[in-house]
């Protein structure tokens, strides 16, 4: 990592503004390359502070129906890792400030080759990785090499991450910590904000790293409530649902960006 990475600069700026950041998730290539790219390019202006881009996978074991279907649409239309990295390059041609995190599962990276993947991801302008099926026990697979390549490895902490596991989870995490507010798959209902806040405060006692909260946040009101105490608010399934529901791919892009604008406004005015 450079002394201050794009991700660190972004969270420092958010802190200076005394507000949380909006973290958006969409799947690369959903519903197809062109329209997914259009959506991606529109996200910074719509108010996304950090962008998560899903690397589609046939067997997304930690995802609910919405993101499973998003992956399937993308794969059916020919999305692959080469195209996903190309989307990042396209974003970087016009945006040098918004951190981008690739999120997904290990197998497509493993198959691509960890070394080649990290080299190309760093060159393309990827700032972080979230790989759901790589717990700290497997840090030598990708987490440590990613850090050496200048890419943050963002870890998920969950309600089952107890005091015994938390130090291990935090050890090689950088960029931010993604607190998954409920056990279960993406898109599941969220627990009460009071409960989530208490859990986030408990983690803060152990780390200074920014904490993003996700899973089950769908509306501007919910996002605002979480934005009062979290450093980042992650919204995914609600955006992916907009793509699924749209009558045309163009309408899908417009619908996603419109929801992002509403969410961004709510997050910015939360405190």
């Amino acid at each position: 990592m450079t002394a201050t990475s794009r991700m660190e600069r972004r969270f420092a700026a958010l802190k200076a503004d005394n507000r949380a950041g909006l973290v958006t998730f969409t799947t690369a290539g959903d519903p197809d390359y062109t329209h997914s790219l259009n959506t991606l390019l529109g996200l910074p202006a719509a108010g996304a502070d950090v962008i998560e881009l899903g690397m589609p996978f046939t067997d997304p074991m930690a995802d609910g129906a919405a993101i499973q279907l998003g992956s399937q649409r993308a794969l059916a239309n020919g999305q692959n890792m080469v195209k996903t990295l190309q989307m990042v390059r396209e974003l970087r041609k016009q945006d040098q400030d918004t951190p981008l995190v690739l999120m997904g599962y290990y197998n497509p990276i493993y198959r691509y080759g960890v070394e080649a993947f990290l080299e190309e991801a760093a060159e393309a302008g990827v700032d972080g990785l979230i790989v759901v099926d790589l717990p700290p026990e497997h840090d030598d697979e990708l987490c440590v090499p990613a850090a050496q390549a200048g890419i943050h490895f963002i870890r998920l902490a969950t309600p089952t991450t107890d005091a015994k596991r938390l130090p291990g989870v935090l050890a090689n995490t950088s960029g931010f910590l993604y607190y998954v507010s409920s056990t279960g798959v993406t898109g599941a209902a969220a627990p009460t904000p009071e409960k989530v806040q208490a859990e986030v405060e408990a983690i803060r006692a152990h780390t200074d790293i920014p904490i993003g909260v996700g899973f089950g946040i769908r509306t501007p009101e919910q996002a605002a409530r979480i934005a009062r105490f979290a450093d980042g608010v992650v919204v995914g399934s609600a955006l992916v649902d907009r793509i699924a529901a749209a009558e045309t791919p163009e309408a899908g892009t417009a619908s996603v960006l419109s929801l992002v604008s509403e969410l961004a406004e709510a997050v910015r005015n939360a405190r």
């Binding site: 074991m61 930690a62 290990y106 759901v132 099926d133 790589l134 717990p135 026990e137 497997h138 870890r155 998920l156 902490a157 969950t158 309600p159 089952t160 991450t161 107890d162 596991r165 989870v169 998954v180 056990t183 279960g184």
Partner: peptide, 12 residues
């Protein structure tokens, strides 16, 4: 082999 699972499942 290994334990390639989500963090939620690791404690269990």
């Amino acid at each position: 082999g290994g334990r390639f699972v989500a963090e939620t499942l690791m404690p269990l």
